[in-house]
């Protein structure tokens, strides 16, 4: 029997891509509407907020997977003995950055979800363009968000590579190298989409 450890680790890897990674892409795409003005963004956000069964979908496809991925991820990050000072290889740096961006994202997402979604659910604020414009008016928050978006995109791109190795899809050194280049492209494209959307609110 595969141990609980094995199942948890593979579940962690799987959930990172489906649904969390896919949700990240949807989220960044919706954000990008902000570049076409407040009305375009509000319409897109409105569609997302009025999807049928939206609360159920949020819980099953976002909150529960994200919670598992975050908590188990913290456990993984604190298990490693980082050694890039002695072994400064590219993959070892990626290993470190994957864990550090993950820890940053736990803090960033807790804050981000609290100040947007929870505030909206508690009827403290309206979920629209102005909400984000208000938040990003503060230069400190702007930096916090830009780093958050880049960290999320990095964690997704590098996590995509790790997923393909953990599930035994890319085996040969050549496949792993080519996939690294591919994920670099994914990182650059998504970072552009994400950061440009952040600046659209400023």
């Amino acid at each position: 029997m595969a141990s609980r450890d094995y199942v948890n680790r593979r579940l962690h890897s799987f959930l990172g891509l489906f649904p969390i990674g896919l949700f990240l892409i949807v989220h960044l795409t919706v954000n990008y509407y902000a570049t076409q003005g407040p009305n375009a963004f509000n319409t897109a956000a409105n569609v997302m907020e009025h999807l049928p069964f939206v609360r159920f979908l949020e819980i099953v496809l976002i909150y529960l997977p994200l919670l598992f991925h975050a908590i188990y991820g913290i456990y993984i990050a604190f298990q490693a003995k980082y050694n890039v000072n002695h072994y400064g290889y590219f993959r070892n740096w990626m290993f470190l950055l994957q864990r550090f961006t993950g820890l940053y994202l736990v803090i960033f997402l807790a804050w981000h979800i609290w100040e947007t979604h929870i505030a909206y659910l508690l009827h403290l604020k309206e979920l629209d363009f102005n909400m984000m414009a208000d938040i990003l008016d503060n230069p400190g928050m702007l930096i916090f968000y830009i780093v958050g978006v880049i960290a999320a995109v990095f964690h997704f791109s590098n996590g995509l590579w790790a997923f393909l190795v953990h599930w035994g899809i890319i085996v040969t050194p050549r496949a792993q190298r080519v996939t690294t280049y591919f994920t670099v492209v994914v990182f650059i494209l998504l970072a552009y989409v994400g950061v440009r959307a952040v600046f659209a609110f400023v």
Binding site: S3, D5, Y6, R10, Y87, R91, N92, F95
Partner: peptide, 18 residues
């Protein structure tokens, strides 16, 4: 796949270099 098994790998890939 048991305790301490293959799932412990985090792909830092230092091993292949070392």
């Amino acid at each position: 796949m048991g305790e301490g098994g293959l799932q412990g790998c985090g792909n830092s890939q230092n091993c292949v270099q070392a």
